[in-house]
Design a protein around this nucleic acid. Sequence first.
RNA 1: GUGACCGUAGUUCAGUUGGUAGAGCACAGGAUUGUGAUUCCUGUUGUCGUGGGUUCGAGCCCCAUCGGUCACCCCA
Length: 425
Amino acid sequence: MSDKIQAIRGMHDILPDQTPRWQGVERAFREVLASYGYQEIRLPIVEKTELFKRSIGEVTDIVEKEMYTFDDRNGDSLTLRPEGTAGCLRACLEHGLLHQPSLRLWYMGPMFRHERPQKGRYRQFQQMGVEAYGMAGADIDAELILLSKRLWKTLSIDHKLELQINSLGTVEERLVYREKLVEYFRVHFDALDEDSKRRLETNPLRILDTKNQQMSDVVKGAPALNECLGEASLSHFQQLTRTLDEAGVSYTINPRLVRGLDYYSRTVFEWVTTELGAQGTVCAGGRYDGLIAQLGGKASHAIGFALGVERLIDLLDDPARFDEAISPHAYLIRVGSEAERIGGLLAEQLRDALPQLRLIVHCDGGSFKSQFKRADKSGAAYALILGDNEVQNLNIGVKNLRKESEQITLEHYQLIPYLQSLIQI
RNA sequence: GUGACCGUAGUUCAGUUGGUAGAGCACAGGAUUGUGAUUCCUGUUGUCGUGGGUUCGAGCCCCAUCGGUCACCCCA
C-alpha cells in the first residue's frame, strides 16, 4: 500500500457508482440554464497568477495561502483557478464579448484551493457558475436567485436550503463603512478574540460574522452597513426584495452576510443548509460591478454565483434515483462460439435500429450460470439468451430479470420491435 | 497553518491484561450437464499504513512519519 501512488490529498476520484448522480445534477443544471437562455462557456483551468491577485484581492485567504501557484517553463507565474469568475471575465474581455448590451453565461468544472479538506470541502472541487454581464438593474439579480431556486426544485432539495441576502453597497460606500468599522473595533480592541484582531487588518467585515458567542455584544454595538448605503444602493436592494416577495421567494436579510472576495458590491446572496456540518453554504454569489474596469475593461455591470457540486450532491435525498437512467436495458448472454459470432452481429444490428438501447454484450465466455450472474449484476432489466438451441432454431430467448415472468422465445426479426416497446416504457 | 479522533482482507468491521489474525459482504467453484437474484456447501483473499523503540514475544505499549475523517481559520 505504501509504495503505491495515491491521489493528492483533497483530490478525489469520482468512481462509476457515483457518476450517475453527477450526471443527473449536471443535466438538471444545463436544462434550467437553457430555460433562461444562458450559454455555456468553457475556460482554461490555469490562468496567469496576476489575474486572481487583481480580481479576488491580494489580502484574501485565497490569494495569500490557498492558491496552487507554480512557475511556467518561461518564468510566468501560473495558478490553478481557485474560482471561475475571474477567468470568465478575462475571456469575455479578451474576445470582446462585452460589447453586446447583455450576456448570460454558465460554466462548470474543477476549481483548486489548498485548504485542509473536511466535509464538503476539497482541494479539487467542482463548481457550476453563472455570470450575467451588462445589466444594472435589480431584475437580473432576482433572475439569478429565481434560477437557482428552480434548480433546487428540479433536484427536490429546495426544502433544505434557505436564502440569505444582503447589500454591500458600492465599493466606495463599503470603503467608508470599512473605515467606520475599523475605527469602532479599534476602540473595543480588547474585546476582540485573536482571530478578529487579525481580521481587523485583513477583512474587518468578517468580524461581524464571528461564531464566537463572547463577542456578540461588541458585534451588536458595531455600526451597521446599511447606514452607509447611498440612495441608489438602497433602492436597488428594495427592488430586489420586492421582486422576490412578488415571486414568492422567502429569504432572510442577513446584515452580517459579507462575501470573502473583494470584488463584490451591492447584492450578495447565499443559499445555506444545516445538513452539511460546518460547510453550510451550497451556493453563493453577488454583484461585482467594479471588477470589469478593474481588469481593464470598460466600466459595466456584472453579477454571478457559483455552487459547489459536491455539497449539492451531499444534499440529495435519494441519489440512487439517478442510477436507473443509465442502467442497461438488456444483457446479451451467448454460450458457444457460434452464439458469440451471431450474437456480436445481432448486437450491432440492434444498436443500428435502436440508438436509445443500452445493451451489454457478454464477453470472455463462461457458463450460462456465470453469464446470468453477470447479467443480474449489471443491473440490466432483460437478459437476451443465445445458446446452441437458439443458434440451431435461429431464435433468441428473452428473460425479465427484474420481474417474475415466463421466459419467451422470439424470432430475430421480432426482437427489434419488442425491445423498442420495452424502451418506451 | 492549528486541534481532536482514526489507519487490520477488494470492502465494512471484530481482535480480551501483549502470546503469533477472524467474521459479514464481495469474489470463484459446486449442489442444479441451459438460467441470475433467494437457500445450502466449499474455497481464495493480509508487509495489521510505514519506519524505529520497549519486550522472550507487539495488530495491541512508546516515538516518529505518512494517510484518512471531522472541526477551527476560510470558503462553493
